[in-house]
Write a protein that binds this DNA or RNA. Structure first.
Lengths: 210, 210
DNA sequence: GCATTTGTGGCAGTCACTGCCAGAAATGAC
DNA sequence: GTCATTTCTGGCAGTGACTGCCACAAATGC
């Protein structure tokens, strides 16, 4: 309620509305055949103003996705600092899947993924975002690893190792989200668990099988 | 020398030349500030014709990269069919690194990667291409797995597992190519070996530690 | 109440990319 | 070699994403 927030608040509200309108249009006519002008008109703003809220056309689509990604990263970092990276990642994946199944916006999210899968251009951006998250999360886990005196090491490859672990984890998560959404939640969870167990690294300090 | 080849041959020659000219311009002024018109003019063709050779501006950049990717996939598939997927992948990575170090175009390739790293737009496309390769290679390895009666299985997750293995492998390879290019070849090879050993899956049929 | 900051629409311009068309060039049959 | 056919090419107009600039309106601070 303080003064600086008010402006920001209305800005967020407008962004939200524009994003909602845009998603609806994408669902109706597809991403490519919806112009920014269409979106702006439907949202009641000018095209010029659209680009003051979103840097690019695809940003309006990913506005929501970024929240999911941030939530996932947050879940990983909420795990105890001394935990093996693989275990932290695995736990966060399971929490994410569970919360996702309970999401009231489940149907909406599914439609959004249809838009995504139908547009190669959007898919490319999506992969880039995932890669960014991978780097961000990998670095965060690496910092945490370095901060723990018990396992502090000068190994140059540990950074690479951690990034690779994050990469395979995100790969499985993305794959499941895109191609196993028809499965009932329990079955999907079982599939993810089995997959993660299969590729679990052997090294104990990374989270190797008990 | 047969008739249908002649046309195709000159077409390939033109593509090659346009691509070379374009890379030079990108190195000089950067990717974003080089227009398609610039490239076309420098190559002695019209802008309209440029788009008859390359579907998009970035295609002219990736014309070469696609060959490297194809070569990597080929190396994996040249491995004996019964070999564990992880071993096939690891061997192909090492072969790729070795051949890369011996490449006469090493310097050029390095400059090309600089262009890539400097442009977020190109990076996004690059990730998308890697993701495509991941799918392609994963499916190929999966087919091979299914074809082997000794380990034929109806496990629904084995496909996911193999894709994840490919993903972490490509992740390490990409990371090393982009960020460890300053290391001497022998040191880089050691780094890659150590990383791959660390994340090697425990399961023996996938290629687990001996 | 007024000065300053911030947000807005309009307009012109750049750049990637496409469809269309008319002319040049290579190809193949005779 | 000639001619009809196919293929390639440049030019041109148009669309759509995106930016810089400007004048004006609205909110904010005092």
């Amino acid at each position: 309620m303080p003064k600086p927030t008010l402006r920001e608040l209305s800005r967020q509200a407008v962004k939200q509305r524009v994003s909602d309108v845009a998603i609806d249009l994408f669902l109706e006519r597809g991403y490519e055949s919806t112009t920014v002008e269409d979106i702006a008109a439907a949202a009641g703003i000018s095209e010029r103003s659209f680009f003051r809220y979103f840097a690019t056309k695809d940003a309006v689509f990913f506005a929501r996705g970024a929240e999911y990604t941030a939530a996932f990263i947050e879940r990983v970092l909420e795990r105890p600092a001394g935990e093996a990276p693989w275990i932290s990642l695995q736990t966060a994946v399971e929490l994410t899947l569970t919360s996702f199944d309970n999401d009231v916006e489940f149907t909406k999210a599914r439609e959004v993924r249809e838009i995504l899968a139908a547009s190669p251009e959007l898919m490319a951006r999506q992969f880039a975002h995932v890669a960014d998250s991978q780097r961000e999360l990998g670095d965060a886990l690496w910092d945490r690893w370095q901060a723990d005196p018990a396992r502090h090491t000068e190994d140059p490859e540990i950074r690479l190792v951690i990034r690779a672990l994050v990469g395979s984890m995100l790969g499985v998560l993305t794959e499941v989200m895109l191609h196993a959404e028809d499965l009932p939640p329990a079955e999907r969870m079982r599939l993810v668990r089995a997959t993660l167990d299969a590729i679990r690294p052997a090294r104990a300090d990374l989270g190797g099988a008990p």
